[in-house]
């Protein structure tokens, strides 16, 4: 083969090899690490898988936060005003976690229908509503649930 062509071929082969390794790794890793989001209505309806890492989110129900005084364990209800799911979590909650705030939790649903969270996210801004939560609330209100108290996206101060 002509030396230049041979060299080009080598380069192309290198590129292809690199790319296919990257694609293979990516698809493999993606399959392992995609976390689906479920809202409380879906979870109570049994649509969410048990013992698989998922994300769940909604508003923290007023008056539902129970704190163990001897450890870092916290329990609370997450609601979309249509259905509520009990969540338990051991650890430090983010600064903006509060009753009536929108949150997203990562974790697994156990067989008793309780969501065991290993991570709770409430984002950085007091006016912020996680988009999944805003979406879930909107869906729940459309589905004929109770009328939503207030706005899904609180007005800016």
């Amino acid at each position: 083969m002509h030396p230049i062509r041979k060299k080009r071929l080598t380069i192309v082969l290198f590129l292809l090899a690199g790319l296919s390794i990257a694609v293979a790794l990516t698809t493999y890793a993606l399959r392992q690490n995609i976390n689906l989001f479920y809202d409380p209505s879906q979870i109570t309806a049994g649509e969410a898988p048990v013992d698989v890492r998922i994300r769940a989110g909604g508003m923290v129900e007023e008056g539902s936060v129970r704190r163990d005084t001897e450890s870092l364990k916290v329990e609370f209800m997450v609601t979309d005003f249509n259905a509520s799911v009990p969540v338990e979590y051991v650890g430090i909650l983010p600064d903006l976690f509060a009753e009536g705030q929108g949150i997203v939790a990562m974790g697994k649903l156990n067989s008793e229908g309780r969501f065991v969270a290993d991570q709770v996210l409430a984002k950085h801004d007091e006016n912020y509503m996680p988009p999944e939560v805003a979406d879930a609330l909107e869906k729940a209100s459309k589905a004929g649930g109770q009328p939503m108290p207030g706005n899904t996206r609180p007005a800016t101060n």
Partner: peptide, 30 residues
């Protein structure tokens, strides 16, 4: 790789194919 991990959830959401998130393990692994 970083582009796929960042944009894939956005594209799915845009096409209304569900809300997913791709977590740290994906990026650490790849």
């Amino acid at each position: 790789l970083v582009a796929v991990g960042t944009l894939y959830p956005l594209v799915l959401d845009f096409l209304d194919l569900g809300k997913i998130s791709i977590g740290e393990p994906f990026f650490n692994l790849t």
